[in-house]
Amino acid sequence: MKLFEDKFESFFSDTELQKFKEECLRKSLMAFNIKNGNVPKWTDALNKLNSTKKGELGLNDPYISIKNIDSSSENIETNLKQLLPWRKGPFILNNLKLESEWIGDLKWQRIKNKIKPLKNKRVLDVGAGNGYFTIRMALEGASKALGVEPFLLFNYQFAAIDTLTKSNSNSMLIPLRLEELPNMPIFESVFSMGVLYHQRDHLEHLSKLKKMMAPNSELILETLIVDGQKNYALIPEGRYANMRNVHCLPSTETLKSWLSDVGFRSIKLIDVSVTTPQEQRKTPWIGDNPASLEDFLDPSNPSLTIEGYPAPKRAILTCSN
């Protein structure tokens, strides 16, 4: 994937990142070379978008915006809709509003004034999806914002947004899992958002995050939680809010104890929010199966999921290594 390799070369020119360049590139190219019948369609859309004159990247809250792209909104929409579903966003491209399932700006506003400034920092975004937050981190002034996301479609979505911009040299997405990365203790801010509850071994995930952190750096952890005392956690049977692979939802006190067990310090709970259908919603940009949060809650009692568990509630914590 030529566009990826060109971007990778410039992004990994950072002195510290260069130490890990060859291993990350080798593993990334292997990930891109897996068999997937959608790749020709995604590649075609990407090539068509790449042929247009680039626009200017910025913010137009709640959107990441790209202005003055030398292409019609209809052409942009046609190609971006080859990359459905768009889960994270939203974006505005010229006058085209790409209304993703999640309004990511709501989460970002809960975080941005309660964490250490990202300006001039090297940042890692784990489970980055299509890189919406990775780009936000770069727009906040991060010197390098690296997102890792194994789901191939989301990497093509990031590449599509990236290829429409004149300059986005400070953010990058690579198609790897956290566990596939070498230990890179160079990041001054590490984000794990919406990832922990998908891990079979939560302590292993937290330990690996710690191994990616430079001295005196900050972890920003966002995950599903449930009400309860210390040592309480919900282990769903089957699905949770229609999601597969949800292994464990801790109470906030349990979550703090996990972080402490791994060796994190200065653990702070900075936000608890119930997820609403205003934040996670149906839009035409999530494809032929447009179900979203409202379909996964008990219609007679929206405080419960359709499986009878407590409805989604998310906590954000910060801590240092």
Rank of each mutant, 00 (worst) to 15 (best):
L80M: 14
G37E: 13
L59M: 15
D227A: 12
L173E: 00
K21H: 14
K211D: 12
K114N: 15
G147Y: 01
L203M: 08
S73R: 01
N301T: 03
I66N: 04
G194N: 10
T283M: 05
K107L: 13
L124T: 02
K211Q: 15
V262K: 06
A142R: 07
Q280R: 10
I69M: 10
P90T: 07
P277M: 04
V246K: 02
T15Q: 14
S292L: 07
E307C: 08
I64E: 02
P85L: 08
T283I: 06
L206S: 01
D227W: 08
M1N: 09
L83I: 08
D295L: 07
N170F: 06
E9L: 15
K48M: 04
D14R: 11
P40K: 09
F91G: 04
I316T: 14
K313Q: 14
D125W: 00
P117T: 12
L118N: 03
L153W: 01
E101V: 01
L176M: 01
V148K: 01
D201G: 03
G308P: 09
L57K: 08
S28D: 00
S71H: 10
T134S: 15
M30I: 11
Q199V: 00
S251V: 10
I316P: 05
K21Y: 14
K166M: 04
D295A: 13
M137W: 03
K282M: 12
D105I: 06
H198Q: 07
I186S: 10
A233W: 10
K107P: 06
V123P: 07
R122C: 09
N245A: 15
L139S: 11
